[in-house]
């Protein structure tokens, strides 16, 4: 799957216009608790979250993730987007809830990552 596919699967909007949408993504992580995200290095590439603050970008950056999806229509502010852009992280925003967004991505083949806790 590519970031472009996530856009259409989640009927999402791209908030970082210059992002490279052709980058491959295979695994994702959905959480609102940043230390939970940091607990398992599984080479995930997508962070799905309902949290809306700069630490989301910092956490994704620490994990070398390349795409953040904000659920429930949460729109990060300009400072957060600038931080993401600086790190070449694509930021998407979808109206779906966390549960639905993760379900849709899973149904389309995105997984929890290698060595994961039961995916």
């Amino acid at each position: 799957m590519k970031i472009n596919d996530i856009l259409s699967i989640l009927d999402a909007r791209l908030l970082t216009p210059n992002a490279d949408l052709t980058r491959d993504v295979h695994t994702a992580c959905g959480s609102d608790m940043m230390s939970d995200v940091l607990a398992f290095v599984k080479d995930q590439s997508v962070l799905v979250t309902g949290l809306n603050n700069p630490q989301v970008v910092r956490t994704a950056d620490m994990m070398d993730m390349i795409c953040i999806v904000f659920v429930r229509g949460k729109e990060p502010d300009a400072g957060i987007l600038a931080l993401a852009q600086e790190r070449e992280i694509a930021v998407l925003c979808t109206r779906h809830t966390m549960f639905t967004a993760c379900g849709l991505l899973y149904a389309h083949g995105l997984r929890g990552g290698v060595g994961s806790d039961g995916e």
């Binding site: 608790m33 230390s35 940091l38 607990a39 979250t49 603050n53 630490q55 989301v56 956490t59």
Partner: peptide, 16 residues
């Protein structure tokens, strides 16, 4: 509500 307080920070530090 800011995404911290899972109680995983110190365990993560030790683990990594």
């Amino acid at each position: 509500s800011l995404g911290f307080g899972a109680g995983m920070g110190l365990p993560n530090m030790k683990k990594y």
